[in-house]
Amino acid sequence: MPAWSEEATVVARNLKKSYGDFEAVKGVDFEVYRGECFGFLGPNGAGKTTTMKMIYGVAIPTGGELKVVGLDITERERDVKRRIGVVPQENNLDDDLEVRENLLVYGRYFDLPKKVILQRVEELLDFVQLTDKAESEVEHLSGGMKRRLLIARALVNDPDLIILDEPTTGLDPQARHLVWDRLRELAAQGKTLILTTHYMEEAARLCNRLVIMEGGRIISEGSPQELIERHVSPQVLEFRAPTETLERLSPLVQDEADAVEQTDGALLAYTADADTLLEKVRSAGVAVENTAYRQTDLEDVFLRLTGRSLND
C-alpha cells in the first residue's frame, strides 16, 4: 500500500524539449503522485535538469503534454508557479539582502499578505536552523547554510510541490544529513517532492519512486528496491587481483555468476548465491588477494544501465 495518494501532481506525456537541433529530452512519460518523493537519476547530460526546468516553467516544452499541480504549465504558468517551490542547482540567493530579507523579499513575489510572510519567515528560519544567522549577509554563509536558505526560500509560499535540483551536491556529510532530515520531514507533512541527484544513497534513502534517465529518455522506473531486483542480482563479489589473475578467473566466474563486469584491477560478479561462487573460486585454486562481498545497491543498477564510461 503506497503512502501517497493516487492523485497525480505531475503528469508528463511524451514530453520533449529541443534546443535547435539538439534534443535534450526525447519524449518522456511519468507521473508523480501527491505526497511522494520522486527522483530523477542519470548521468550528466541525461536531460534531468531540462525536465525539472520544464516542470517549474523556465523551459518551454517543444512537444508533448505536461501538467503540474493539475494545470497546463504553458497556459497557466503563473498559477503553477504560485503553488510550487524551487531549489535550483546553483545558488541564486540575493547577495544584496540579509538572510531574513531574502525570505521576506521572495515572499512578496507571491503576493502574500505581509503578516503571513513575517510569521512564515520566522518558522522557516527555525525549520532550517538559521534563526541565529537571520541578520547575516548571504555571502558569509557556508555552503550548507546557503543550501538550507534556498530550501527555506522554496517553502515561503507553502507549496504543494517542491522541486530540488541536486539538493546536496557539494555539501559535507553533516550538512547533507541535515538536508535529508528536513526533506524527510517535508515528505512526512504530505508535500510532494521531486529531486535530481547523483548520489545513489540519497535516492535510496529519500525516494519512494525514481526514474533513471539517459540520453534524454527514461530507461527504467520503479522504487529503489524494485530497480535493484529488476536489474541486478542481490549480491555482488568483488575480486581484486593483478589483471593476469583476473583473466584466469574470468571464465570460471562467467560460468557461475549471473553477470560479470571487469574494471581496472577488479572483477565484479553479480549472483544470488555468493557463498557457492566463492567456494568454487577457492577450489579452482586461483590466488585472489582481496575479495569483498556486499549487497547490491542502486549504484550497481545505475552503472549497469548507464555504463561505466564518463559522460562529459
Partner: peptide
Amino acid sequence: IDQIFDAIVTTPVN
C-alpha cells in the same frame, strides 16, 4: 552573475 532574475522567474513574477 548573481542570477537574481533566474530566482525571480520561478515565482509568479514572470
